[in-house]
């Protein structure tokens, strides 16, 4: 940077901000509209209006689902279960697989890495029907099918089944991400730990894992958010309203026959957004480390 704060350099600092501000305005407008409309009967642009078109008409009616529809809390809990289950699964498997792929040379390692990447590029919609048959088959397995508490099981029409499917779809990204983080850790540190008296597993757990905490955090947040927001897979494989997730619940408000109350949909959408926002505020630092490409600090 230029040390002299002349006219030119001040402009150089202000100009990018200005451009970014202008580009952000349309996005912000969307959010502002959502917030305003959830408290209005109708809106005219950003102005809340009542049914007769006069300015005003503020109401809490759109939020009534929170206390009138008991299902909302069930689906919220289901979404939470899905998001947490997915996060645990993705982090655990990715961390172990990523470590193995980064450190251990075994036959088929390159082929495995290539295939996972191709799988990741596969649109999940094309797999929906075949996965349906797989889930139906798992349903018939005793206990594992639909006899597990909290997640229901791993079969069709259970939260666990959805976790299983999403886990498979999320893993390629997770494994590659974790491998990248492990690749950045020097071999010397691992060798030092082996010589100091660690077993391989202990090196992974006590020496390497603490180094990639930012990576684990980032992956966990990513997985949590994608589990929380996922629509297609829970919508497809869960038919029971009570086992449904919040995204599917949102869809059910847009019925094909009755007129759609967009203000209510905005309210449910905002409700769904709140946990993610809170989560994001506390974890954005870690998320950035994905783009920064690894952990900082130490050597």
């Amino acid at each position: 940077m230029d040390d002299r704060m002349g006219v030119g350099s001040r402009w150089r600092a202000v100009l990018p901000l200005l451009v970014m501000a202008v580009l952000t305005v349309p996005i912000l407008m969307g959010y502002v509209w959502i917030i305003i409309s959830t408290f209005s009967q109708r809106t005219y642009g950003l102005v809340p209006v009542d049914s007769a078109g006069r300015v005003g008409g503020l109401t809490l009616e759109n939020w009534a689902f929170l206390w009138e529809d008991p299902n909302i809390w069930k689906v919220t809990l289901n979404s939470f279960t899905l998001a947490v289950g997915l996060t645990i699964g993705v982090v655990l498997v990715s961390a172990l697989a990523g470590y193995a792929l980064s450190r251990i040379s075994f036959p088929g390692r390159k082929a495995f890495l290539g295939t996972t990447l191709i799988l990741h590029a596969f649109p999940s919609v094309t797999l929906l029907i075949s996965i349906y048959f797989v889930l139906r088959w798992i349903t018939r397995v005793p206990i594992l099918g639909r006899g597990i508490p909290v997640i229901g099981g791993f079969g069709y029409d259970t939260v666990g089944g959805v976790i299983l499917v999403m886990l498979a779809l999320q893993l390629p990204l997770g494994v590659w991400l974790m491998k990248g983080f492990f690749d950045n850790i020097s071999w010397d540190m691992e060798r030092a730990a082996l010589i100091d008296g660690c077993t391989r597993l202990r090196v992974w757990w006590q020496i390497i894992m603490p180094q990639i905490k930012p990576g684990i955090a980032a992956l966990a947040i990513f997985s949590f958010i994608s589990g929380w927001n996922e629509f297609l897979i829970p919508y497809t494989y869960i038919t029971d309203q009570e086992k449904s997730t919040i995204a599917a619940y949102l869809r059910s408000l847009m019925s094909d026959t009755a007129p759609v109350n967009y203000s209510q949909i905005a309210a449910v959408g905002l409700f769904q957004l709140i946990p993610v926002m809170i989560f994001f505020i506390f974890t954005q630092e870690y998320l950035l480390s994905i783009f920064a490409g690894g952990s900082k600090g130490g050597t």
């Binding site: 020097s186 010397d188 540190m189 060798r191 030092a192 730990a193 082996l194 010589i195 100091d196 008296g197 660690c198 077993t199 020496i207 603490p210 180094q211 600090g297 130490g298 050597t299």
Partner: peptide, 28 residues
């Protein structure tokens, strides 16, 4: 390696960055 009772010093130091100096020293 853990049963060979050797000490090794690396070019990159290879200290454990999440541990303090004391913890590094007592770890082995």
């Amino acid at each position: 390696p853990k049963n060979r009772n050797v000490g090794m010093v690396f070019q990159s130091y290879a200290l454990y960055p999440h541990m303090t100096v004391f913890e590094n020293l007592v770890f082995p």
